[in-house]
Amino acid sequence: MKDLSVLCGDALGLMTPLLLAAIGGLFTELAGMLNIALEGLITIGAFAAAAAVHAVSASPHFPAAGNGAAAVIALVAGSLAGGMVALGYGIGSQRLKANEFVAGLATNLLATGIVVALADRLLGNKGVVSLAIPGLARPLERTLGNMPFLGELLFRQDILTYASWFLVIVASFVITKSTFGLRLRASGSNPGALATLGRNPKRYRLVAVVLSGLACGLAGAALTVSLSAYVPDMSAGRGWIALVAIYLGGKKAGGVLAACFVFAFAESLSNYAQGVLRVPSDFILALPYAITLAALIGGAAWKRLRGGQIR
């Protein structure tokens, strides 16, 4: 029982970047786009966060590490960088009418290429770079962290994890209750009707893309902050898994949350397996993709079984 609560608690921590990316991707998905650029946007966010912290901590004006400023700088820089790259992707695919899918592919390629090219320049190293980012605050740990079961599970998470849950609620509210959310969904499901209202569906798609970029950039920064280091290929397929989580979650915020937890639990389990079973690392690295593919096939088969429509 105690193992289960630890495993689930770890999973909730691991879920944070995935959840952030998936919630961002939910906006583009509802706006009718297949946003395969999530992976590249996470990569950009992780790198920008590292580059910002690296640059700031090299400056003499930066007070000794130990306060939360480094983490805040990382999160803001990552999110903004993700948003900016997403804006380019959005302008390309919506305004310049580039094929959405190929433009997404290009964004991913560009992200990996530019990050490798810049890592040497900005971080002074192409490999792992450790950064002066203190651990994030865990606001409930002292008061509630010792509760049986729930303490391990819920109350030892860091503040970013709680913030990501809050963002899910906000996103869900915006999508289902607000006028903006209604129009955003219309830009995907019925762009003609939206155009009749005098609203440009493409503008809503562009906003959705930028929102997904901000969220994915934040997700990438969360990876950097949680490790206090930058590791090449840090995203490791999370963008793709987020995309599948959106599908499996039925394109609803609650469903996406549940799907993300399943993936995070699998990750936490595979971390555990790596320690205990001594499985070759190649298998562990392949696991997220394998789980995603299995979930995709399983989800499609399940839809078929329930007599769902053939796409």
Binding site: N99, A106, L109, T112, G113, A117, R121
Partner: peptide, 24 residues
């Protein structure tokens, strides 16, 4: 002294430009 992976950046640009219908 350029070490990075500039090829994939160039490839990405080509992807983008080839499909961008701005050329139309």
């Amino acid at each position: 002294d350029v070490t990075g992976d500039i090829v994939s950046v160039i490839q990405a640009t080509v992807f983008f430009l080839v499909t961008a219908r701005a050329a139309d």
